[in-house]
Amino acid sequence: MAKKIAEKFKMMIPAGQANPSPPVGPALGQRGVNIMEFCKAFNEKTKDKMGFKIPVIVTVYTDRSFTFETKQPPASDLIMKAAGIKKGTDNPLLNKVGSITKAQLMEIVDQKIADLNTTDKEAAARIIAGSCRSMGVEIVD
């Protein structure tokens, strides 16, 4: 049929946990998207990625139908994979749970930089390093 896009927007939602409360409810409800159908379909599609946060792009058409596309998990998941841990620390100041090398950090920057509208690797590295610190992952030489 003649699909005409009314709006396209992006969210990041924990896999398998979309529900009609904030934040998902207001985001979808304000745009006239069938909240129940979205939650059902998103949770079904991401149920094998529980524990990860999933970027999702929702396209809403003029007749109120919608489609969505899920993306790969974000840099923090790449950090956890590089550090060989399943979870960040609950206290980044006291408990360090792992480490990655500067080279690994820059590898993550290289992977993520393709998604960004910047070539400033140093700035990107600062943010990812910030994520590492907050997860209790040290950066070593």
Binding site: M12, A75, G88, K112, T118, A124
Partner: peptide, 11 residues
């Protein structure tokens, strides 16, 4: 930097 900040928030 939206993606990277978003990632930070999600931690």
């Amino acid at each position: 930097y939206l993606d990277l900040i978003a990632d930070f928030i999600m931690q």
